[in-house]
Computed example of a mutant assay.
Amino acid sequence: MFSPQGPSLRELMIQAMSSVEGGYDLLAPKFDRTPFRTPDDVLDACADALRPLGPFDRGLDVCCGTGAGLGVLESLCAGRVTGVDFSGGMLAQARDAYRDAEYVRADARALPLAEAFDLAVTFGALGHFLPAERPAMFAGVHRALRPGGLFAFPISAPPPVTSSAYWAASGFDLAMRVRNALWRPPFVMYYRTVSLDALRADLTAAGFTVSTVPLSSLGRRADSSPHFGLVLARKSDAR
């Protein structure tokens, strides 16, 4: 799962015993050599699905990390793109990779932005927010978008209960809950708290109109349903 240039087991253990912010500061220089980075095929599929929904002017990557999503925005947006993250280490890596972007260091639960963007995206970050924290994040994204703006992110289909992926995710979440019960500060990263129904309800409560489109290029399951979909949350164009 990790390249020889990726983090060692010791480094991962130190990260896991840190806060979310501190852990990602430590991991940042090697993050792109881990399986935690959103794969290029997922990024490309999202860009292809979003392109017909434009044109877009300014773009925002929420929880941008080392900047993989900024490449998607740069391919779609005519104006400047902005990355937001609360890890200074991750932002430093993003600045090196995407020098034309703007950056804001901020907590996504309290975005300091208002009606500035046409398109907002996030990749692989939702598991870092407890269900009770998502409404504040979604409200901040809604506030950051211009009227008619779009918030988009990929979501994977839940693995069947008989699959190894289901039990691996369940085991990881259990280990995180035990770790957070015994150790402070907490490290919030859960795989099984991000269901489509819950996300749809939280986005709707934040004022979005929500739809989904399949990312068919990423394949389909045995029942012909797609492995991945793209959530599209549209802000009303009325002021």
Rank of each mutant, 00 (worst) to 15 (best):
A101E: 03
Q93P: 04
F117D: 04
V84N: 03
A110R: 14
R37M: 02
L111F: 12
E21I: 15
Q93F: 04
L203N: 03
A144Y: 03
D107A: 10
G229E: 14
S87H: 09
R234I: 04
A152L: 06
F36M: 15
R95W: 06
L218R: 08
A139V: 01
L60A: 11
R239C: 14
D85C: 14
T66E: 10
S156F: 14
S217F: 01
A233M: 07
D57R: 15
D173F: 02
R134V: 00
A206W: 00
G140Q: 06
A206P: 00
H128D: 06
D25A: 11
R221D: 06
F31V: 03
L76P: 05
I14G: 00
G65P: 07
T34H: 08
G6Q: 03
R10M: 09
S224F: 10
L9T: 07
T66W: 05
A181Y: 04
L145D: 12
Y103A: 02
L203E: 00
M17T: 14
R51T: 08
S211Y: 00
R51W: 08
G71K: 02
S170E: 13
L150F: 07
G59C: 07
L26Y: 10
V194F: 05
A45G: 08
P29T: 07
Y190P: 03
M13Y: 00
R146H: 04
S8W: 10
R99N: 06
A28N: 01
R109D: 00
V178W: 13
G83L: 06
P160N: 04
G59N: 06
E133R: 07
R58L: 08
A78F: 07
